[in-house]
């Protein structure tokens, strides 16, 4: 072997070491369940790179904790998307002509094996125009066997199902009030009154549809609420199961929130994109969303871009620092939610 060959081998080895010593940078993708198709945006190019068809309207969605599945709630059914192949792999049907199940909230167990569903159930009787409206149920559903494991009666209108990452025995339910549900006994423990506040407190009006996700997953789920005297944000810590509030200094009409990875800022959106200081509740900046009303918010892993939308068939991309519009991405249809998935 010549010296020249040895040098070439050494150079190649150094190159390999250099490549392996740098961590593989994950690419950010945003999954947007639109009307009749799941659209996937590549955050590097800000374009739709994939569209997975189905025939439905999706009200909310959630990734499994291992991020291998993306579950879409179509009220009567749940669709499962394999996030590695980006294919629709299964449909879990919960409604029939005689038993109408409306899934209001959706969550996945920490071991990825069970769906947690907050359901409204109405049963029809054969041959006669009569309906039985049954008490709402919290259903634990085994994904593999496609069978209901257990169910508990719950108060109505729990649209937010928030599993706790360090507690497999309890799940937080958010709706007219915030409760902790014991999955072993079905016992409900009220954590925060909203429609039914504690004595001396104001009633809070909150619409809980969106559980926006965030890079790094600090485990804080924030949602706006409104009282007679102003607005605030309730924050559910998925690590501890504790619920706290942040009083807003100004009143902004917001559908949903996302907290920055460093937990310094809270963003909100409806007709405006709003940036709030998490320590003081003060508004740092607010701008009208050029495209109009939007529902959801998604941050990129580097924290530099925030994706606003959908509602109408588009996503608007803003700079998180300046809240300046970077661009708009057209979508195939209207939508409600968007979630980040770094790959």
């Amino acid at each position: 072997m010549t010296i020249k060959t040895n040098r070439a081998i050494l150079a190649m080895m150094l190159c390999c070491i250099a490549v392996l010593s740098f961590p593989v940078m994950a690419k950010d993708f945003i999954y947007i369940p639109c009307v009749n198709a799941l659209e996937i945006i590549d955050c590097e190019t800000d374009t739709v790179v994939e569209s997975i068809p189905y025939n439905d309207y999706i009200v909310n969605s959630v990734f499994s904790p291992d991020k291998k599945r993306y579950y879409l709630n179509a009220f009567h059914s749940v669709y499962a998307i394999d996030t590695t192949t980006n294919k629709l792999i299964d449909t879990y049907k919960f409604s029939s002509e005689l038993s109408r199940v409306t899934i209001l909230g959706l969550g996945v167990s920490n071991d990825n094996s069970q769906l947690y569903l907050s359901c409204a159930i109405v049963k029809k009787k054969q041959n006669i125009p009569k309906l039985n409206v049954l008490p709402p149920q919290f259903v634990v559903y085994d994904i593999k066997t496609k069978k209901m494991v257990k169910n508990y009666q719950i108060p109505c209108s729990f649209t937010g199902v928030v599993p706790l990452r360090n507690d497999n025995d309890n799940v937080i339910l958010v709706g007219l009030d915030i409760h902790k549900l014991n999955l072993k006994t079905g016992k409900l423990e009220k954590l925060m009154g909203m429609l039914n506040p504690e004595k001396g407190e104001e009633a809070k009006n909150g619409l809980v549809i969106w559980q926006n996700n965030y890079p790094g997953d600090h485990g804080l789920f924030a949602n706006p609420y409104y009282t007679e005297s102003g607005m605030g944000y309730f924050i559910v810590d998925k690590n501890t199961g504790k619920v706290s509030t942040l009083k807003g200094k100004d009143v902004w009409f917001e559908y949903s929130n996302v907290i920055s990875p460093d937990k310094k800022y809270l963003y909100g959106v409806m007709d405006e994109l709003v940036k709030i200081d998490m320590k003081t509740g003060e508004t740092i900046k607010a701008i009208p969303v050029k495209k109009g009303t939007c529902y959801a918010l998604t941050l990129t892993s580097d924290g530099k871009k925030i994706y606003v939308g959908p509602a109408g068939p588009d996503m608007s991309v803003y700079d998180t620092e300046t809240l300046e519009l970077i661009g708009t991405i057209p979508l195939a249809g209207d939508g409600v939610i968007a979630h980040l998935l770094p790959k």
Binding site: T102, A120, N132, V133, C156, S157, T159, L176, L195, L207
Partner: peptide, 13 residues
């Protein structure tokens, strides 16, 4: 018959 919750409409406060 429980009438606390109609199907579909007005499910949320």
């Amino acid at each position: 018959i429980s009438t606390s919750m109609p199907i579909g409409c007005t499910t949320i406060f």
